[in-house]
Amino acid sequence: MEAKKTQILDLCDEELVHPGNRGCAGCGLNILYRIGLKAIGEDAILVVPPSCLTVVQGLYPITCSQVSVLNVTFASTAAAASGVRAALRAQNNDHTKVVAWAGDGGTADIGLQALSGAIERGEDILYICYDNEAYMNTGVQRSGTTPRGVLTANTSIGGKRERGKDVAAIVAAHNPAYVATCSAAYPLDFHDKIAKALSMKGFKYIHAHTPCPPGWQMEERIAVSVARLAVTTGLYVLYEIENGQMKLSEPSAKLLGKKKLPPVSQYMQAQGRFRALTPADIDSIQNEIDTKWAGYRRQMTSAAA
């Protein structure tokens, strides 16, 4: 049985994030944080490493967050969250949720060891990675998840040469309780996946594609629509993995019925960071997307047969 999908009107009215924080105008993380906290609620302890979220939270002694947050060192997110969980377990507290919330650098790069360890131990925590595809907080340097060809402060001429890491797949290879991908363009999907994850025991992971107007070199007002394009062109796929079974989420599942996906070039042309890509580069990315989706269609047909 599928849980009922939350609609905008169903969302909790209470805001757990105060206005007037230090997020950039048009920050995709801020959308996720606001809606995410509605799903998480106040009976929670968040664990946050250095990232834009550190800045969004605010400078001592004021914070925008109306939930408890433990700020920790860059590499230690999943381990510190494990410690919080261990303490709660020692206190027989099984109601307070432990949520680690880190950026792509803090997850895919410096935090990967601790993340892997926590998954392997089956820690009862939810780990959310908001992936804006570079170290935005330090001024837009390449991260492990920055896609190939993207211009950043330290790949400023020809763009990043290497592919981005597929962190959700790395996490899934550990066989945790739950893995899901999300996008800031689909906050309700994010909300419901958090709620679902928090209803489970064990390690849960949500990877959320997050637009960043300065880092992606685009106007603030189109931040959500550009993030949406990543999904609707089939470049960024929303799915869930439970018990080793992958299932496309609604926004992506809709694409299965389409004979031809909208061109990914729309997504790239909306952003300055892809400027270094040649038409041939974009064609090859388009080919990869088409091949990937042909695979999904085959899987679905054989599953149906």
Binding site: T73, A80, S82, G83, Q113, A114, G117, R121
Partner: peptide
């Protein structure tokens, strides 16, 4: 609770989390 961590960095991180949570 005995947490068999993957590094000393994480060992102290777990303790930081635990102490902060009481």
């Amino acid at each position: 609770e005995y947490v068999a961590v993957e590094s000393e960095h994480s060992a102290l991180a777990v303790c930081i989390g635990a102490l902060s949570a009481g």
